[in-house]
Design a protein around this nucleic acid. Structure first.
Lengths: 352, 352
DNA sequence: TTGTGGCGATAAATCGTTTCAATCGAGTTG
DNA sequence: CAACTCGATTGAAACGATTTATCGCCACAA
């Protein structure tokens, strides 16, 4: 209604052809300085803004990438999103964020929408284990990078963290601290991450020559604080509580921790807790949480760069499967206080 | 490269004109059942996906809305984003999420990009107090809804929470609990929210007939956990610590809380803490945080609906300024333990 | 038989940009 | 002075969908 000013009006005002205006916009070097300035003046005067739709209609693909995550409310994913956004902005791309809440149906809907938008590429943490939607996208020629999910598709890149090793690290640590009755609180085993982390935990047992029943599995419906609270209540109700709990992610761990603290269960002395992801809130918890750190932003940044690179040179692009190595960050929630008489204050002051 | 199948190929296969295919897509009722089915079969067979760019080139506006927030890592904003996403998906729109990190420069860049995308509308929590970028968008005819920011623009809608009242509620509560030396830890006063909440806090004093110096201000650069940690350290270093702290948001409060707990300062007995936003992590903190609750998802949902409504019927749309009323949620972090001998367990079990 | 309507389908114009072959003008060279 | 080069600019053809006027057809009425 106001003034949808087009390239043509700019051309008229600057007394050049539309082709020249387009050149000023896209390859300023090929146009003579004098004309260039004249055109730029006209653009400024009319307040012209390039119409992306038209541009991408011609070029066939958009200057946007889709990011599909399991849960936007999980700081792990927002941190990752930050990395994605950073890299995307760098390349002049917009990010379309989609949230699936671990639901395959929602995922399918979002992918449909992204396909219609002709996005440059899609970064996705799959909720649908079958990867059907992702495969369909690939067939349509959309680049896909699987996030936090190991290479299940040969014709796509993936960026992941070695979840199996992560699980192993966590349980190794607990075993080393002397625990021999460990419960793993985990999200839906439908999700790759959940499975891998559990497998890693089992690896640790095997390698240490311990019986498999040292580790029990407690599965909750979703990787959320609410899930952790529920798990905590259940553990509390048990006759023989485990001396250590390994949680599939930090939200679960925070939930469990909260229940224990409220009930007067001392952490870590009565129960050690280890989380996964090392979100900022983990370190900030009242009993700082031991956690398996993943390079959150870096995952996002790397994935975004991969997908952008792929679409810029599709032919010579070789699909990569990048795997970061997780790192165990030990904090109070799992540290055995062997010397209970040691001055507390000194310890707390050394915090970096 | 694969098969960018267009409406034309569908038409050929179904032996109809492109116009008819378009009709099947957009007003299936005007086309005869037999042809309709034939076309739909062709669409399915070819795996046709409508090209949004082409569609919006014609219609002039996109099926996407922009959401510009101060900090994606803040659960308050992700919860809000969830609401936005929900309402947008409902209306078949995509959400383009932009993060400004409270920087006016980043905000300007994002708005430029959104303008190029010809988004349906923009929901924004402004980082730039001058609102220049927003105004420019309006001039270009893009609908804008200001989020969490009071009506500064007469020609836009806004959805906000009465921050001033919120601040008042918080400090009222602290006064009622008998505190007479309160520090407000706040983010940059450049931000509207920060100013309003502080003003509300001062209101509380005035109305209670207390001296203004009962409340001191401690400003940190950003509304983050890191900011809270810094503030906490500063408070700890003071000779005379305040008996209560009111934080401009929950991230700050969690930071302060963490420092206090580590240092052995008992919360709330030695220092009461009140936050703002009531993010989920507030309730889940080891000392559950008293906080001023805002209807996070509802803000987002309402705003998205407003902007969609505006663009669907621009002429008859009346700009609205919706203000939600905040609510104080009292938890342990500020509750005076008047009767220390009371059984703790009973209290904790009543938690909903 | 002619006229009138209504329904379904069509063809063509259109949206704003990019791209590419063609053109133009001014030098440069033989 | 003609032939050529080269850089700068132009004009028109795409891109893929929507939309509008139009057309063909059939039924029914006059």
């Amino acid at each position: 209604m106001k003034t949808p000013v087009s390239i043509r009006e700019v051309a008229t005002l600057a007394k050049v052809s539309v082709g020249t205006v387009s050149n000023v916009l896209n390859r300023p070097d090929v146009v003579a300085p004098a004309t260039r300035e004249r055109v730029q003046a006209a653009i400024a005067e009319l307040g012209f803004v390039r119409n992306e739709s038209a541009r991408q209609l011609r070029s066939g693909t958009a200057r946007a990438i889709g990011l599909v995550v399991l849960d936007v409310a999980n700081p792990f994913f927002t941190d990752m999103a930050r990395g994605v956004e950073e890299a995307a902005t760098e390349a002049g791309h917009a990010v379309i964020l989609c949230n699936t809440d671990e639901s395959a149906a929602k995922e399918a809907r979002h992918l449909e929408l992204l396909a219609e938008q002709r996005v440059h590429g899609v970064l996705i943490t799959p909720a649908d284990a079958s990867l059907d939607g992702v495969r369909k996208l690939r067939e349509r020629g959309v680049s896909v990078v699987l996030l936090d999910h190991h290479a299940a598709l040969p014709d796509s890149c993936s960026v992941a963290v070695d979840d199996r090793t992560g699980g192993e690290l966590a349980v190794n640590h607990l075993l080393a601290e002397g625990h021999d009755e460990i419960v793993m609180v985990n999200g839906a085993s439908r999700l790759e991450q959940a499975r891998q982390r559990y497998a890693g935990a089992q690896d640790a047992l095997r390698k240490a020559g311990r019986a498999p029943d040292v580790l029990q599995l407690l599965e909750v419906p979703a990787f959320t604080v609410a899930g952790g609270l529920r798990a905590g209540e259940q553990l509390l109700a048990r006759a023989n509580r485990p001396s250590a709990v390994f949680c599939g992610n930090d939200l679960l761990a925070l939930g469990v921790l909260q229940v224990m603290v409220r009930a007067g269960v001392r952490v870590p002395d009565d129960m050690a807790i280890v989380g996964y992801d090392d979100i900022d809130f983990a370190a900030a918890a009242a009993v700082p949480l031991t956690s398996v750190r993943q390079p959150r932003q870096q995952i996002g940044r790397t994935a975004a760069r991969l997908v952008i690179a792929e679409t810029q040179a599709p032919e010579e692009h070789e699909h990569q499967h990048i795997v970061f190595t997780p790192e165990l960050v030990i904090r109070e929630s799992s540290r055995r206080t062997h010397k209970p008489r040691r001055a507390r204050k000194v310890g707390s002051r050394t915090t970096a």
